[in-house]
Each structure stands twice: as C-alpha cells, then as structure tokens.
C-alpha cells in the first residue's frame, strides 16, 4: 500500500534546457579548456578571437537569438534551491514551480 510508487509530477526547471545545452557543447567549450591548460597566458582578445573563429555560425546565431531572454533573469536572484518550498498566493509550491 505504498504511496510512493506513483506517477510523479514533473520537475519543472526554471531555465531553458536548449540554451544550456548549446553552451555546453564540446565545440563551444574547447577554447576555454585551452586557455586554462595552455603553457602561456592568452590575452582576452586572443581568447575571444579564437573562440569566435572556432564557433559554428549556427551556434553564434543561436546564442545571439537567446540574448533577449537573458534580460528576463537579470533582476531575479539566482535559483539556488529549486526544491525550496515557498508560499505564494496561498499556494504551497516548490520554487521551481514558479517558472
């Protein structure tokens, strides 16, 4: 008679998964790895130049398209605890429900 083996409600994440996935792609992250591990420090311009060169055109366009959505989060505190329980308008919710 366990009540735990049930269909769960979805865990709603507050950020777009597509946006995070694109930035985490191997293609985009390579220059940073070089910068960290390189034998001599790279200047900011060199790093950015190399970064821009090695990014695909598609990735750059998608990143630019996503920029306006960043403003939505600009004035909001980071959601450190999506499972934190909050009470809003009488509703008892997870913070992640508020997306």
């Amino acid at each position: 008679m366990s009540i735990f083996n049930r269909a769960k409600l979805p865990d709603v994440t507050p950020f777009s998964p597509g946006f995070d996935t694109e930035l985490a792609s191997p293609e985009a992250s390579v220059p940073f790895r070089n910068g960290i591990r390189g034998s001599r420090p790279l200047s900011k311009g060199v790093v950015m130049g190399s970064f821009m060169k090695r990014m695909s055109r598609r990735a750059i366009v998608q990143a630019l398209m996503a920029l306006p959505t960043l403003s939505l989060f600009r004035n909001q505190p980071a959601v450190a605890e999506p499972d934190e329980i909050v009470e809003v308008n009488g509703w008892i919710l997870r913070r992640s429900d508020l997306a």
Binding site: R6, L9, D83, I85, E87, N89, W91, I92
Partner: peptide
C-alpha cells in the same frame, strides 16, 4: 502548511490554503 509542504516535497500534489 505541513501538509502542503509534504505534498510538494514528495511531488504528490500541490495545496492552496484558503485566504
């Protein structure tokens, strides 16, 4: 609040307390 918190934490549902 206790009941609502349990329901949310366990993802069993969501509770609204009357105004």
């Amino acid at each position: 609040r206790l009941f609502g918190t349990t329901m949310a934490q366990k993802n069993l549902g969501r509770v609204r307390i009357d105004d």
